Amino acid sequence: MDFGKVLTKEFLLSLEGRINRGQYWAFILIYIAGAIVLGIVDGILGTGGILGLIYALAALYPSICVLARRWHDRGKSGWWTLIGLVPFIGAIWILVECGCLPGTSGPNQYGADPLAPGA
């Protein structure tokens, strides 16, 4: 997995197209690593979590974009991201659908298969 691709403007800010599970998990790992680092810095500086809050707000739109593109890979509308607003069930649904299940094979209405050769 090319972590550099996950940090590009197109990857983080576009609602168009599809991403595969590997790219999705790479984003999640980078996000969690950033949150951990900022949590440690918050603790050292005694800022009361303000850096973590700023980080979460700054990562909100990129997180929505990445999740919507993962839904696209599953052949579903990016609006499925809103299932995350349902307590407990929403998080499990997203974990299973976006994190565990493979995307649709071949092109779909959202674009070419990200795992296809040359994609």
Rank of each mutant, 00 (worst) to 15 (best):
M1Q: 04
M1R: 05
D2I: 00
F3P: 00
G4Q: 14
K5H: 05
T8H: 07
K9F: 12
F11V: 04
L12N: 04
L12K: 04
L13D: 01
S14G: 06
R18K: 06
Y24W: 14
A26L: 12
F27L: 06
I28W: 15
I32W: 10
A33M: 12
G34P: 07
A35F: 15
I36Q: 10
I36M: 13
V37Q: 07
V37L: 14
G39I: 07
V41L: 14
V41S: 11
G43S: 13
G43V: 00
G43T: 02
G46V: 11
G52F: 07
L53M: 10
I54V: 15
I54A: 13
A56T: 13
A56E: 01
A56G: 09
A56I: 04
A58Q: 09
Y61P: 00
Y61H: 07
Y61S: 05
P62S: 03
P62G: 05
S63V: 07
S63G: 15
I64H: 10
C65A: 14
D73W: 14
R74I: 02
K76P: 03
S77F: 09
S77E: 03
G78T: 04
W79D: 01
W80V: 05
T81L: 15
L82I: 15
L82Q: 05
I83K: 00
I83D: 02
G84K: 12
G84R: 11
L85F: 15
P87E: 09
F88W: 13
I92F: 12
W93S: 06
I94S: 11
I94V: 13
L95H: 00
L95M: 08
L101A: 08
G103W: 11
T104V: 15
S105F: 05
P107L: 01
N108H: 07
Y110W: 13
A112T: 14
L115H: 06
L115Q: 13
A116P: 12
P117C: 00
P117Y: 10
